[in-house]
């Protein structure tokens, strides 16, 4: 019994010290040029978002991700399409029509998705400057972008932005109508 307990504890300990690094990858962008992980790191945090053309929540997330990119210039937003080669043209047309400021990559053969066990889109990862995964989330509903922004600001050592309604003194009982408390 003692042996098993020790074994389990050591396994758990080992699990905690495993690094949570983004696996290295080389994926083609919309022009066919290869982009690797090292090309994306070093400037600032990275949001890596897996999506597919048939996925409505994925498309719903894109304007919010674009707003984050416009707000934080050193943030890099990477969209990785899981679409099959025969539907990639449709995915490209969708993105080109929206003028988003994303790096667009294609992972039809699930090379990176498999390493991260991404099965259902959307699936979002936030990386720090060195490529460590600091946050991951499956799915998207409006409001989630606030959590993404909170994680990004944490990477820069910034505090959570104060709720705009609080700044105008419009919060009831110290609670922000958009979630969270006033005075952060």
């Amino acid at each position: 019994m003692k042996t098993w307990i020790c074994l389990i504890l050591m396994t758990i300990l080992a699990g905690f010290v495993f690094a949570d690094a983004m696996p290295d990858f080389r994926l083609p962008d919309e022009t066919g040029k290869n982009v690797s992980l090292s090309d994306l790191l070093g400037k600032g945090p990275v949001i890596l978002d897996f999506w597919a053309d048939y996925c409505q929540p994925c498309k719903q997330a894109m304007p919010y991700l674009n707003d984050l990119k416009l707000k934080y210039d050193s943030l890099t937003v990477v969209l990785v399409s899981l679409d099959a080669p025969k539907t990639q043209a449709k995915a490209k047309v969708y993105l080109k029509g929206k003028d988003f400021r994303f790096v667009t990559l294609f992972d039809a053969d699930k090379t990176l998705a498999k390493k991260l066990n991404v099965v259902n889109p959307p699936h979002t990862f936030i990386l720090d400057k060195s490529g460590e995964i600091v946050f991951s989330h499956l799915g998207f509903q409006p409001g989630m972008e606030k959590e993404y922004e909170k994680q990004i600001r944490k990477l820069w050592g910034l505090q959570e932005e104060e709720c705009p309604a609080c700044q105008e003194g419009k919060c009831g009982q110290g609670l922000c109508p958009e979630g969270g408390k006033c005075g952060n």
Partner: peptide, 26 residues
Amino acid sequence: KLILLAALLLAIAALGAQNTLSLNGL
């Protein structure tokens, strides 16, 4: 055997501390 296993796990953990060993699962 337990000591050897613990040493092996700690060695793996040490490798992990170098941020070159990663594990992702679902």
